[in-house]
Design a protein around this nucleic acid. Sequence first.
RNA 1: GCUCCCAUAGCUCAGCCUGGAUAGAGCACCAGGCUUCUAACCUGGGGGUCGCAGGUUCAAAUCCUGUUGGGAGCGCCA
Length: 558
Amino acid sequence: MKEIIIALLKANLSLPEAEISSTLEVPKDPKLGDFAFPCFNLAKSMKKSPVAIAKDLAGTLKSPDLEKVEAIGPYLNFFLKQDLLGNSVLKEIQKKKEKYGSAKYISEKIMIEYSQANTHKAFHIGHVRGTALGESIARIASFLGGNVIRANYQGDTGMHVAKWIWCYTQYHAKDEIKKDEEWIASIYVDAVKRLTAQPELQAEVDIINKKLEEKSDSKLQALWEKTRQTSLDAFEIIYSELGTRFDEYFFESAVEKRGKEIALELLNKGLATKSEDAVIMDLKEYDLGVWVLLRKDGTVLYSAKDLALAERKFKEFKVKRSLYIVGAAQRLHFYQLFKTLELMKFPEAKKCAYIPVMEVRFPWGKMSSRTGDNVLYSGFKRELVSDAKEELKKRYTLDEPELEKRAFAIAIASLKYFMLRQDVDKNLIFTKEEALSFEGNSGPYLLYSYARARSILEKAKYDPKKKYAISELNAEEKELLVRLGNFPEQVKKSYETLSPNVLANYSYQLAQLFNEFYHKHQVIGSEHEQMRLVLVDCFSIVLRNSLSLLGIPVLEKM
RNA sequence: GCUCCCAUAGCUCAGCCUGGAUAGAGCACCAGGCUUCUAACCUGGGGGUCGCAGGUUCAAAUCCUGUUGGGAGCGCCA
């Protein structure tokens, strides 16, 4: 589409194609045409006012593909012939269906590390944000041709585990060990509470921590293994509900040894240095401060472990690009990691990227999994499902499995969309009122729009093969059409900026346009029934594709 | 003290990368619309010094500098 205009302008102006292409824009108001060319830049070289240039060009530019060219002030506005627009967009969507918007845009092997929940602790809605973000970026990357490996790096050792084991053995030993995130979290919260009240008890925890590290107490070891697995199993249930799966699970214990080796190698090569008996990377000349690899007692830190993990990613998995989707507090750590990998001369280091997961906060401040002043995934999902059931019951009489199925899909759409619709660089202010809302800019609105479209197609016994002609398009049809045609570009943009919220906003705007069209124009029985059915079909395909990239499954009936 | 992120309507946010035509949504508030394809919808209304001050430009919410406020981080936690 755009090429037609570019070619036309190129033939009439002495400007390089690249400049024409970047100047050419889509007007905000569709009434102003399909494309617009601002003439300000031409003013100097042509020694005429932009308004006069636009006016003159409007008179000379002609093409069989154009309805008209109009000068409005300093803008040259192009109106394409409608059947051209309609045919190209609708045909392409109908042909490619679920592949519409996909491309061989990238072909690299990419590893995406995300979620990183710690065992023996809660899976709260902050984790949902990171998990939803990672899953969506993984889907977008593979939609654009990437060979994606989803990785989860979980903290299954450390002080938090010791606290949990201590609290369980001391105060909850009679409790049955449950594959339940909320119960697991409650033990940890109890541990923190008791330790806050009686700090001297920390000595008991330290003993357990040491025994766990040394693997010297077989009873504790067995309890650790059992509870670790229970915790991982509880997470796995959540992952499946959230529509996420991982190809690779990494654990800190598996990279400890190699991490230490790398630190010592760096020391030998003179890249790392000793300072106060610790092994450090001095990155001050890069404004990245000091990065400690080994403690003064020689034990390995998170930093060195991450070096070992990165090395595995490059050497064993041969990834060319590595994305880290991790809490924003760790930003500096990752910049230090990337810089060190670069100094270690890994060519892939330059293609490492860190995507911060900003906090999910209450309006009055941050959530805390230590005190339990937070919102856990499981409990909140239950609330969403229960609310969705109420809404469904108000409207229809459904049997239990169908009610359950719809309510669950609505809950997931609601939660994931709420997490993804916002810019990744911003804290997300969580209020129940907003998160539980099924109206307006929300997941359920999108599902509803999709279900409405599908319902029309079903009632009309829609046959996609039936012939139709693109007639005079009304404003709503045209806007919808233009937006549908814009989807592939939005997918690329969301990948380039690593921002699924681009697609979340796109989905919402698309659904809004559809609902306006739906309200204003009858499809079934209208003069242009087949054309409108095709439009509705294409809308449903594109919305489904877009939501699928967000990791949100649709409902055929809502 | 230094570094990074954020600041747009009463509230929650799009738009910023790649500067252009009256700055857009949702919620809340007010007024309307279901005998017609799902009203979880749609239409209209009020509500904005785009934190502030400079700069670049024909043109700045958008780019640059400074500044204020909020958040996060800064050698042996992860």
